[in-house]
């Protein structure tokens, strides 16, 4: 018995050493999910309470600060454009030929009726600046071993006070994430599926978002095509590109 205890005592420091810190995990996630520039053609399948709608779009982005999205289908949304320049967001509606800046409470509105809000789109993915990350355990998600990381907000201007992330121990992708309000209410849930190797990084082909306060069946974000570190046409990242 003493021998077993000694073996366990010798093993524990080794186990602790293998467990990365919360910040290290976040850095590894960024290596997978972030890039200097990106071009994505995607499909959003929105499972509403009454109907399922599919919205197609093309997005060009530079880092996390600048992004230009043009909606391609359906006909009602075709030609609608969205531009994010740092902390500002504009939407252009071809039917009205108006460019509206999304601010204030409008940021809480749903993007095209999906489970994502404009606020989610504006959310700075550089989580390390606003959250203190702690690894709280280890669990299995869809057969993959995951670190359970809890991120507590250290800044007052964040949409979610607590984020709980299940990070794949091998591929360092957040396979599941739960976003909580200050009251402890679960607000949103995200799950990643169909993870494939894109260049030298792992990237999900499908992300399922679920706004827990909405009654629909969630929103599937399906990546049709993705290119990293491509040249983004300069003219797309200005308000002039919207009209």
């Amino acid at each position: 018995m003493k021998i077993i205890n000694i073996i366990i005592a010798l093993m524990i420091p080794g186990v602790l050493a293998a467990q990365p810190s919360g910040d290290e995990i976040l850095d590894r996630i960024d290596e997978n999910m972030s890039s200097e520039t990106r071009h994505v053609i995607s499909k959003m399948v929105i499972h509403g309470t009454r109907a399922t709608r599919t919205i197609e779009s093309e997005t060009w982005s530079v880092g996390n600060e600048k992004a230009y999205t043009e909606y391609l289908a359906p006909a009602r949304e075709k030609g609608t454009k969205m531009l994010k320049l740092e902390d500002q967001l504009w939407i252009y509606s071809p039917g009205t030929d108006r460019t509206i800046r999304i601010s204030g409470h409008m940021l809480r509105q749903s993007v095209m009726g999906s489970d994502l809000s404009y606020e989610d789109m504006m959310d700075d993915p550089e989580l390390r600046d606003k959250y203190d990350a702690v690894v709280t355990g280890s669990e299995e998600i869809n057969g993959a071993g995951c670190w359970v990381v809890e991120m507590h907000a250290n800044a007052p201007d964040v949409a979610y006070q607590l984020r709980k992330v299940w990070v794949d121990k091998v591929r360092y992708l957040p396979l599941k994430e739960e976003l909580y309000a200050k009251s402890g209410t679960l607000l949103k849930k995200t799950e990643l599926f169909d993870i494939r190797k894109v260049g030298n990084r792992w990237y999900p082909r499908k992300i399922v978002f679920k706004d827990m306060l909405k009654k629909g069946g969630g929103t599937e974000f399906i990546v049709e095509e993705i290119e990293f570190n491509v040249e983004v046409p300069e003219h797309l990242l200005s308000k002039a590109a919207l009209r």
């Binding site: 509403g48 009205t96 108006r98 509206i100 409008m106």
Partner: peptide
Amino acid sequence: VTLITTTMYGAMSITN
């Protein structure tokens, strides 16, 4: 004037 509202499906609607 432009009416900015939400469609029946929850999407933002902008109509003149």
